[in-house]
Amino acid sequence: MSILVDKNTCLIVQGITGKAGSFHAAQMRSYGTRIAAGVTPGRGGEKWEGIPVFNTVAEAKAKTQANASCIFVPAAFGADAVREAVQAKIPLVIVITEGIPALDMVKIKRGLSPRQTVIIGPNGPGIITPGQCKIGIMPGYIHKPGPVGVVSRSGTLTYEAVWQLTGLGLGQSTCLGIGGDSIPGTGFVEILKMFQADPRTKAIVLIGEIGGTAEEEAADFIRAHVTKPVVAFVAGATAPPEKRMGHAGAVIAQGQGTHASKIKALKTAGVTVAPNPAQIGSTLAKLLRRAPS
């Protein structure tokens, strides 16, 4: 078990003939991910490294076993690519593209039935169930199969945390980034729900950052519904207000989204907060030694 993806996941890559799409399609395939099809409008009928390319997602889905899609198209076409995958009723859509306007995501989500399609991202590293399936841009070799679920708003900070876990012998059930935008397709709460329900996940690492209220909402949910041990880290203690720190969503605006507010909410909910980004793994290791499950 794991969440959202496993060895049965069968992928469409939207933008497979582009620079990023083709590079990462090759990386995903060499990790063992099953790639059924690529989609590039106007390139239907071609093959990419032996994989059939279609003009539309609907066609790719009809002619293959695909049950997930990964989007690598440029920002200006990102929202349309997500809409196309949603309309084709792809159950899981992972959006790597950075720079999709926030209002477009609001509109897409308002027309979405979450039972039909789960969107992960945009502006995230993707999702990996170690040893089974990697969808996205993370370096595969830093992961190893195991009991820790990792969810994050960041890319490289997630790699950092995973690397620490793997170094301590703590493997991962599934790791994913919900993305750095202000309107993510799926939030912390939905992912925590899935980790809580997944029998293979024994502990959870949550990595947040300044901006918005996602960590506060996650804390409320953890207090009420999560029985598994949770370690959190929130980046941005030193970030000045009203400045966007790289990610579209990482900005303390109108006094909301401060580091202090998030840490307080998480601690109040009983979450163990890692004091230092270099100690995310060791904080969890210590917690698990203290409370064997």
């Binding site: 790699y159 880290f233 980046a235 030193t238 990482a250 980004p277």
Partner: peptide, 14 residues
């Protein structure tokens, strides 16, 4: 990466 960049700043302060 933005998250790692913020975390690095935090670590310097720590």
């Amino acid at each position: 990466g933005a998250g790692l960049a913020m975390a690095t700043m935090d670590l310097i302060k720590l």
